[in-house]
């Protein structure tokens, strides 16, 4: 029996969980680049159905993983899937739009995947990412490329990479780097 969807559209949830996404958005590519320590702390902001959170927690059993979302339905689904997969290193938790209930400097990695283009004003959340990271920690942003490629959303719904970089710089991140690992997504990292 699936957790109560609490108003989430089942069709949309089905698409988010679709394994077909793996063909062009394999989350393992992210940690191939990040090379996290086995005992790292990772926070996934806007974790949704756990497309990234679940495989990361599985690949890094010694890591502490937080999957955060503003929808209680998502948090419920993620907690249920983590329990079903025996991932006791994964905590699903409810967040407010720009506030995660975790202490300053607690994380080695903060991931925001497919979240940026949903935000009208990403700056406060970028600042929250910086607050959560230990000095030298890594923020990792994945979002649709700003191009007509048959997958990315329509213009106006995409965020140019330069804009994401400006948001990161504005929040105090340095040593920004872009990684060409996906056909349809940009992947940008920065250091706190």
């Amino acid at each position: 029996m699936m957790a109560d969807l609490l108003g989430m559209d089942p069709d949309r949830i089905g698409r988010l969980r679709s394994p077909e996404r793996l063909a062009y958005f394999d989350p393992a590519r992210i940690w191939e680049v990040l090379r996290p320590a086995p005992d790292c702390t990772l926070i996934d902001i806007g974790a949704g159905v756990g497309f990234i959170t679940l495989p990361f927690a599985k690949a890094y059993p010694g890591a502490k993983v937080y999957g955060c979302d503003i929808l209680e339905g998502m948090v419920g689904l993620l907690a249920e899937d983590a329990a079903a997969q025996g991932l006791d290193n994964l905590a699903a938790s409810l967040m407010r739009p720009n506030a995660i209930d975790l202490p300053d400097g607690c994380a080695d990695i903060v991931i925001m995947a497919q979240v940026h283009h949903e935000l009208d004003a990403p700056e406060p959340l970028m600042a929250e990412c910086h607050r959560l990271l230990a000095p030298g920690g890594t923020v990792a942003i994945v979002d649709w490329k700003d191009e007509e490629n048959g997958k990315s959303p329509a213009k106006g719904r995409r965020v140019p990479e330069a804009t994401i970089r400006a948001h990161l710089t504005g929040a105090g991140f340095r040593d920004l780097d872009s990684h060409e690992i996906y056909e349809f997504h940009a992947f940008i990292t920065g250091q706190a």
Binding site: L5, M8, D9, R12, I70, R96, P97, E118, A121
Partner: peptide, 26 residues
């Protein structure tokens, strides 16, 4: 048009409408 810059005390309470598109009436 987006006065909510995180410094006016309301940012934590404000939600971006696009995040709501996944919701339907339960």
């Amino acid at each position: 048009e987006s006065p909510n810059d995180g410094r006016d005390g309301t940012a934590a309470d404000s939600i971006d409408p696009k995040l709501l598109e996944i919701l339907v009436c339960p």
